[in-house]
């Protein structure tokens, strides 16, 4: 993250882009009270993750720095900030909008690519093969079918196979 903000590099349209996405509508209501950061269990452990700072950067128009940042991927989606935000910013949804935008800008964490591949291949994050099904049957659980076609169809339809 930069310490000095170069005003000429800011993108004033960024906050409107975010607000135009489902889930991002309330970002402009943020008045930086810091309730989100105060209750954030991730920030408690690693101060580099700071939701208030991320929202502030987004509102200032630091588009490139926000979208390329690793920190937007560190939200554990615990919804503590979401419940407590006095301005109903819906921070988890805003983080998701930012992550979706980061993906479109080409910043895709490799672990997410792996998950997309698994979902395409198996329709679930874990393959259940014949060996697993035998183990399931042995303790009286029904077999699980891998349903790859429809889910890989959705992944293709929404362009995630191209990432």
């Amino acid at each position: 993250m930069t310490d000095v903000i170069n005003v000429s590099e800011l993108d004033p349209r960024f906050k409107y882009e975010i607000a135009a996405q489902p889930g991002g509508e309330n970002i402009k209501a943020c008045f930086s009270c810091g309730t989100c950061s105060a209750g954030c269990p991730v920030r408690e452990i690693d101060e580099r993750y700071n939701p208030r700072r991320i929202i502030r950067m987004a509102l200032l128009g630091m588009k490139e720095q926000v979208l390329s940042s690793d920190f937007i991927w560190l939200c554990s989606t615990c919804y503590t900030c979401y419940e407590r935000c006095p301005q109903d910013v819906k921070l988890i949804e805003v983080m998701n909008v930012l992550k979706n935008m980061a993906v479109k800008a080409g910043y895709v964490p490799s672990v997410m690519k792996t998950q997309i591949k698994l979902l395409s291949d198996f329709g679930r994050l874990y393959e259940i093969d014949e060996f697993d099904n035998k183990k399931r049957e042995k303790i009286g659980l029904p077999r699980i079918q891998m349903q790859r076609e429809e889910i890989s169809g959705i992944i293709k339809l929404t362009g995630l196979d191209k990432l």
Binding site: Q21, P22, G23, W73, M95, N96, V97, K99, N100, V103, V108, M112, Q115, I116, L119, G123, R124, L125, Q145, M146, Q147, R148, E150, I151, T158, G159, L160, L163
Partner: peptide, 15 residues
């Protein structure tokens, strides 16, 4: 038997 993943894991990639 048609059930698969709920979709949660990739909400961050594409809503």
């Amino acid at each position: 038997e048609d059930f698969g993943c709920c979709g949660f894991p990739i909400k961050s990639v594409n809503r």
